[in-house]
Simulated assay, not measured.
Amino acid sequence: MTAATPLLKLNNGVEMPALGLGVFQSPPDETTAAVEAALRDGYRLIDTAASYGNEKEVGEGLRRSGVDRADVFVTTKLWLSDYGYDSALRAFDTSLAKLGLESLDLYLLHQPAPLEPEPWFAAYKAVEKLLADGRVRAIGVSNHTPGLLRTLMEQTDIVPAVNQVELHPYFVQGELREVHEKFGIATQAWSPIGGITRYRAQAPNGGRSVLEEPVVTAPAEKYGKTAAQVVLRWHLEHGVCAIPKSVKAHRIAENFDVFDFTLTPDEVADIDALDTGLRSGPDPEVIKLDTFGTR
């Protein structure tokens, strides 16, 4: 891993970079160049998913970058339509083939399915087998609440290494992070800069931007950084792995330039105080296998 990137040790001893590139909603025809640019700039974590439709392009970007595969932490996710034991194993093979890889660093269940739990549990048991077989270095989940984490762990054997969730200054997930700490689960933030609160029409504070908050802009001016860089630094101060998305080369480079300054405890606390407790993404408690249709 690049020396510039702090590493988080997962509960099975595997190390994961604390900052990566997410490619949710990155058009396939722009994903390859984005991944290549990110790896050139020093990123060593790339996060994709079967449902994003760009696994093939992520793999191509990795190959074009010239960075050794062993130095890049690659994550993808199992979609709801492939939940179940055998179907999960087949979907994993499909993702590997699209990525052009022989193994993964992290494989996640993309969503919980509490209203149809048996396929959800079976999918995680399949992922446990992939870990036992050495086909993936770590396993975990995405979008699981404290209660859903406990439900899943009661039915399965391996504590997730990672839970990737909506997390930004307007939704700090304090209770969830306490549960993660108790069980040694790493917290990974999607929409870490709070873009979902601006772009999703049904977001409770739609249109409001954390990048315009004085408690963010003041440190940005103080440290000669952008507001987005301050928010990403806030994640790092909390020990949260952030995976901001961009397909713009200058923005990708900017998002990675956050290792040469730190926030004071008071600055972190001021940003924490922006929390509304309101989720902008889908409610994990009511997700069904057909909630989002097929991928």
Rank of each mutant, 00 (worst) to 15 (best):
T2L: 06
P6K: 08
L7E: 10
N12H: 13
G13I: 08
P17G: 05
A18W: 01
L21K: 04
L21P: 02
S26D: 11
S26V: 14
P27C: 12
T31Y: 03
G42I: 05
Y43T: 10
R44E: 00
I46F: 08
D47H: 08
A50K: 08
S51A: 13
G53F: 03
N54T: 13
E57D: 12
V58G: 10
E60K: 14
R63N: 10
R64P: 02
S65V: 09
V67D: 05
D68L: 13
D71A: 15
D71V: 09
V74N: 06
T75I: 13
K77F: 03
W79Q: 12
L80K: 06
L80I: 10
D82K: 12
G84D: 09
A91D: 07
F92S: 05
S95H: 01
L106I: 05
Y107A: 09
Y107L: 12
Q111L: 09
E116G: 02
E118C: 09
W120Y: 12
W120H: 01
F121C: 04
A123L: 08
K129Y: 04
L130T: 02
R135N: 03
R137P: 07
I139N: 01
N143K: 07
N143W: 06
T145L: 00
T151M: 05
T151S: 05
M153L: 13
E154V: 10
E154W: 05
Q155S: 09
D157P: 00
A161Y: 00
N163P: 04
V165M: 05
Y170D: 08
Q173I: 05
V179T: 13
G184K: 09
A189Q: 05
S191H: 00
P192E: 00
I196C: 01
R198I: 13
A203S: 14
N205M: 08
G206P: 01
R208F: 03
R208Q: 11
V210K: 06
V216W: 00
G224C: 10
G224I: 12
T226N: 08
A228F: 07
V231I: 15
L232Y: 03
H235V: 09
A242H: 02
I243N: 00
R251Y: 02
R251W: 06
D257N: 11
T262M: 04
D266R: 15
T276R: 14
R279P: 03
P282L: 04
E285K: 15
F292W: 12
